[in-house]
Design a protein around this nucleic acid. Structure first.
Lengths: 188, 188
DNA sequence: GACGTTACCATACAGCGTATGGCTGTAAGT
DNA sequence: ACTTACAGCCATACGCTGTATGGTAACGTC
């Protein structure tokens, strides 16, 4: 099937995704171009379009790939604050591995919108925390905002530029304490 | 001085900033190009570069312009929860007026980093709330994360796509309650 | 051998930010 | 009054982007 002269095997979507993720981690989403990706894969730029629709959907797939690797806390009956902390740490760890991609995903949520795994896990934890069904959406969105804002600020450096303690690990723990205490507002 | 044939007056940085902001509000930051801006100002693209350094610094100025318009709560001795709410509402209102610009600013914080007005106001409020100096940075960053994450989510639509109550005004009030309750975590 | 399909590639287009250099009319210096 | 300097503007061009279009080569099936 007219495999590339330079390469042994034909391209595959998975290979494209993995290479794109590597380039993104190395040079940021804005540093990724179809031409550079093609060079990295030793292929003509237009060859990529026989395996993916467009650069946008390529980024969607890569986001989904990273999202699927999130190790969310299992429903093992552990205390809810502990589970909430685990969920936070999982997201933050992934964001530190792929900062530019998370930044992109957070600015283009249509890309991640369909990943309801995270919301389901969060809802379960919040329910375990005694949040009633009427407040569930509010609590979930408040926690989403806090978590995603922290990741955003850490990724962009906005949290570093503010004065005060420079240890963001400690600040993250504090923010989790803050969140756990804040959930009291939903107990009426 | 060889003023443009089509325009009566010469360009000014302020006119450029104002027009850029208008175009950004209409078509997003990613929809703004120097060429379109030039068309809007009835001028050759390269003429802009006699008044601004680059597109990047242009965006910085526009961000600063919007930031300066933020009406932060005055230090009038009002109860701190009320001041905290006012600060939150001020930021959210501005973000709703200029969503795309806020999205840009949040992803490029080097642009807004030098605007410490907000942090000073927040620190003042938190001190009034009884937060000790050791916890001030933690509390400030947690609140920054919550606020900026909410604005991010509302701007991109990530908060709409989640299920539950669709009224984001109400959710924002809930999040403020959540924040106020959460500050208890810093009282030791 | 003919044919359809798959993988790949070459060329081209419209758009981007902006470096470079040139034109023109006003202002300042003498 | 004459020269010089400069401010404001513009035309052209370079290298980059994503991708539409259409062509070519190798394969499986008949």
């Amino acid at each position: 099937m007219a495999v590339s002269a330079h390469r042994g095997a034909p391209l595959s979507p998975e290979e494209i995704y993995a290479t794109a993720l590597r380039l993104i981690d190395a040079g940021g989403v804005e540093g990724l171009s179809m031409r550079k990706l093609a060079v990295e894969l030793d292929v003509n730029p237009m060859s990529l379009y026989h395996h993916i629709d467009s650069k946008t959907t390529l980024l969607q797939r890569v986001c989904a790939l990273v999202g699927a690797q999130l190790s969310l806390p299992p429903d093992d009956g552990a205390p809810w604050p502990q589970q909430l902390r685990a969920l936070g740490h999982a997201c933050r760890a992934s964001a530190r591995r792929h900062p530019s991609l998370w930044l992109y995903a957070q600015s283009h949520p249509e890309v991640t919108g369909s990943d309801h795994r995270l919301w389901r896990a969060l809802d379960r934890i919040l329910t375990a925390a005694g949040i009633g069904p009427d407040d569930l959406a509010h609590a979930r969105k408040a926690l989403f905002a806090l978590l995603s804002g922290f990741i955003l600020g850490e990724t962009t450096g906005a949290l570093d530029e503010q004065g005060g303690a420079a240890d963001l690990d400690e600040t993250f723990e504090s923010s989790l304490d803050f969140a756990i205490a804040g959930l009291a507002a939903f107990h009426r």
